[in-house]
Design a protein around this nucleic acid. Structure first.
Lengths: 250, 250
DNA sequence: ATGTGACTAGAATAACGAATCTGGTCATCT
DNA sequence: AGATGACCAGATTCGTTATTCTAGTCACAT
């Protein structure tokens, strides 16, 4: 599991050392490592109990640090949980880019879409967020910058314009309609994906294939640009920009 | 507005007579007319206040009849509201068939789908039901036969098999996947359609066209069957069956 | 017959003080 | 320094009682 950290800037030397198995854990962690641990804990509890029912004490206990320590990393509870969501989004982006890089057709739009879709689907936190599960984000969601959700759904019209210009998707459809339908499909899939497991066992591979097929037939033009690198560049650029916007909010 | 009543059985002779404008209304209605009025009232209030907050008294007042009268038509509150939903579904079916009949391409699958979609989208009650808006159906939804919702979403695999056999949709895709994605798309569209009005003014005509385009490219085979009547027959049959199933529940 | 609305029992809701919980601080410890 | 957890004020929840509401009935009116 390679993990290219685009993350929060600070780098620090101190490597982790003799990690012993105490009652929970006891690591003389580096600051960054500890932050990651705390965010892990926060994500776990956020999914399990939701924002309202997850207390700072819980997170601290789960992460094996003192309560005050959390306030050494974030100004308040909101900032900490926001960062948790931001990191999940970051991971999904990295995951998508990784999948695209490994895909020979990674420069084609239908691959971008299905890989991106699957990356979100794989993360329960992002799925819940897009589904608009208020019971999980109760109270936090208002504090969240409204951009975040929109970015996650990814119905950015600007991006569609770029793709049309590059000849990667059909130019004969109105941009707002494409944006609307792509968003609707994404939300619909995430909202009903729990049925997948229960009723019909559809594998993720099958779903990826089917989604690629759908997007290709619907949105890709007869003749694709010869240079496949163009697509890859645009996608990477787009995903990066998206993350930048979210990061601005700290 | 033609209205072929498939409804509740009873027929009665008494025609309506001098309808005067009282404080609300005063019609010596036929039994059936009155039932329609009550259902209209119930639908209005259901959308406005939801099931929990709508009382039988409210419905009676809105319909301009006495409270007891409602109990002359339905055993209890549940039955009355269920009938309201059933009627909405019936209307949507009739609406879809009417649109298909008026459409020269009414025998093609992509027309069925977009017309059906639009019919649901046009009815706030059905939209809310499919969206799973619990705040509206709170308490009623449990009493509802689980079939109802499934039928409304229309992800009936059986139907897809028929369509494949008739050569109206591609046969090279697994049925469960088609069912899943069609359901997801429908739910997504309905769930996000409120954004339509607000942000980007997408007309219903545009949406119909775009949906037709999507479904045709995604699901229709190269070569369509020459006899367009086949499609119409299958669609009519299917929509009828769907309604029958719901009607069984009274 | 047919329609009605006053009536009732049981359920839902409001009121409200007591008890508990929790985000954030800071004196203390390492 | 860097980290912690006891502590506090304000918010939330809980337990209880009082009040209101409403589905369904039925004696009466039309």
């Amino acid at each position: 599991m390679p993990d290219s950290r685009l993350g929060s800037g600070e780098t620090e030397g101190s490597k982790s050392s003799p990690l012993q198995q105490g009652e929970r854990q006891a690591w003389p962690d580096s600051r960054q490592q500890r932050e990651e641990h705390i965010l892990d804990a926060a994500a776990t509890l956020l999914i399990r109990w939701g924002y309202r029912k997850t207390t700072i004490d819980d997170v601290a206990r789960e992460a094996g640090v003192g309560k005050g320590t959390i306030y050494l990393h974030w100004r308040d509870k909101n900032r900490s949980e926001e960062h948790t969501i931001f990191r999940a989004s970051q991971h999904a982006t990295e995951d998508t880019l990784r999948r695209l890089a490994a895909d020979p057709d990674g420069g084609l739009f239908h691959r971008l879409w299905s890989h991106g879709m699957l990356a979100i689907l794989a993360d329960p936190l992002l799925s819940a967020l897009i589904q608009g599960k208020q019971e999980i984000f109760q109270g936090l969601i208002d504090a969240l910058p409204p951009e975040t959700l929109k970015q996650l759904i990814g119905n950015a019209e600007e991006h569609i314009v770029q793709l049309q210009a590059a000849g990667l998707i059909r130019a004969d459809l109105p941009v707002p309609i494409i944006a609307f339908l792509m968003g609707a499909l994404k939300i619909g899939i995430i909202s009903t994906s729990d049925v997948l497991d229960k009723e019909h066992a559809i594998s993720m591979e099958q779903l990826t294939e089917a989604l690629s097929d759908l997007m290709r037939r619907w949105l890709e033009p007869e003749h694709l640009p010869s240079d496949s690198a163009v697509g890859k560049r645009i996608f990477a650029q787009w995903l990066k920009t998206t993350n930048e916007i979210e990061k601005q909010h700290h």
